[in-house]
Amino acid sequence: MFPRPIQQSSRGAQTTYQSLIPVVLLLWLAPLLAVAFFSIKPGADFTAGNYWGMPSSFEGAENYGKVFFESDMPRYLLNSVLITVPTVLGAVALSCMTGFALGVYKFRGNLWIFFMFVAGNFVPFQILMVPVRDLTLELGLYNTKMGLVLFHVAFQTGFCTLFMRNFIRALPRELIEAARVEGVAEWRIFWFVVLPLMRPAIAALSVLVFTFIWNDYFWAVVLTQGAESQPVTAGITSFNAQYRASYHLMSAGSIVAALPPVAMFFLMQRHFIAGLTLGAVK
């Protein structure tokens, strides 16, 4: 193990280390903790210039209540859900199939198609912006959730294919060969043999794609406007414009906007990290 386990050091070093971690963590998260602190203060504190002193009263419930009941925030949150969940389903379904095709079959151009997905996945968004916006307008999907979902599914398929294909490659080939010898149809091999083995990859990808899409801002701004279809990342800017200088409400709004992926991460931590670090060890 590297560095040398702290247990092999002196008693003093161990205590220092153990007390140092929370301090470093506090510093690391300080900008965020500050916002959380702001979000429970009453608005009067800010007009009085009391930014960092004790809150004159605890107004957490009041502030968050305002965010949930007196603003468009619930609507933006719902939009985010309605954009994110179909994208996850679509991208995972498509990439299970492409990953299967590229991971199992040997045919000419296999590696080229694979590299097309990988390369496309690295492309800067801006080169897609004008044509994709144009296409979405032509399809009559500008400013709809559907327009965003279709693009996200397509783009995420690149990353997901990379992930799925490498995962399927690592599965034991004998299983598939044995099924073929038995005369099992290819789609049945996919459905009954390979898909059940892909469960961990599907879980990992779902969590990752959920976070990526939930946090998307660029495409939300390019393809939507207004509260009826914008997700929360774009909505928070309108929210802030509405409550300009009300730091207690803007802070509470930011916390609410950030929360769903955070909850997802803590609930599905193992899968999340497995997905993120795929390939980090050989």
Binding site: M116, F117, G120, L128, A154, T157, G158
Partner: peptide
């Protein structure tokens, strides 16, 4: 999907 939304737009 990928051709329509990624490769052709490039």
């Amino acid at each position: 999907f990928f051709l329509v939304y990624v490769i052709f737009p490039v």
